[in-house]
Write a protein that binds this DNA or RNA. Structure first.
Lengths: 165, 165
DNA sequence: ACTGACATGTTATATAATAACATCAAAGGC
DNA sequence: GCCTTTGATGTTATTATATAACATGTCAGT
């Protein structure tokens, strides 16, 4: 953790040590199974691609990689796999970027907030428990029955603040 | 739902009494001026269109209306006007819906959260001051310099909860 | 082996957004 | 007042993102 990384927290699994990536895939497998879903090759590979990526990837970027590896070449291939991952809590969709990123903590249900750096485009998943509670309150005050929420913040990550212009 | 309005709070200016709409346009004019920007006819009309709308409108919906009134007929016309409004705090972009909505409180700077009903597609702008503070904290904890944020919640508005299936 | 449910792949199309450029209008210097 | 500079408006064309609809394939349970 006190590594020579630029970002605290989760950058990408490949650079947080191979352990966490294997662990996440393991968890993913388990989690999918428990939900009666199958983590098929394309889906698993898609998750790996996200885990390896720096920052979030667009669907077409994912598609390119999948296609290069012999999977289908058409958009629905990527969108289906990505949607599967999102629906099963293994990935998140970053709307502001029209992109997707692997979930950093697939092991427990959580509401996440994303910190998007407008300089380097890195995406950090922040714990949003406090936020979540505030949101619950706001929803309640409005008589709104909250299902799920998207929280995306834009600014500068620590590394880019420190970096000279 | 025997009341004339389905939603508490801000539905659309036209249905919250014509006063508020005139007031908002007035404020918009002033606010734009103060920022050294001009609220030109297309822009003003675009804002009016948003204010009149139930829920958020897609850029192409706005474009259709503008075109019908003799303004330009091509996408950039709508996008430019909409982006102008967003940049000047007169409208918000709802990413989940690929749509835009007039700002309910253009008179003061605020971070807003949106409550999107998945049944009737209504969009309510909730005050997010508490939320905002929680977000600041989360950002600070991550060493992230927060600029702006998008908070979009999905669920059911009060009217749709009450309504029978 | 058969079947029903789900996965994968395809083609085609829908929807959303921007690039690049020409023309036009307004604000300020002289 | 006239001219320049800047910004606004409009166009055509293109790019980017996402989904519909359908054919084929795979697998678990019977």
């Amino acid at each position: 953790m006190t590594s020579p990384m630029h970002h605290d927290g989760f950058c990408c699994a490949a650079h947080s040590g191979s352990d966490s990536m294997a662990a996440i895939l393991e968890t993913a497998e388990t989690r999918a199974r428990m939900q009666g879903a199958r983590l098929t090759p394309v889906r698993r590979r898609t998750l790996e691609i996200l885990l390896h990526a720096h920052g979030a990837l667009g669907a077409y970027e994912v598609l390119e990689k999948l296609a290069a590896e012999g999977y289908g070449t058409q958009p629905p291939v990527a969108y289906r796999a990505l949607n599967f991952l999102v629906e099963h809590g293994l990935a998140h969709r970053i709307r502001r970027l029209n992109a997707f990123t692997a979930c950093a903590q697939p092991d427990h249900d959580h509401r996440a907030a994303f910190l998007i750096c407008e300089k380097c485009n890195s995406v950090t998943e922040a714990d949003a428990d406090l936020l979540s509670r505030a949101l619950d309150q706001a929803a309640q005050a409005a008589g709104f029955q909250l299902d799920r929420a998207t929280i995306e913040a834009v600014g500068q990550c620590r590394a880019c603040q420190d970096a000279p212009e």
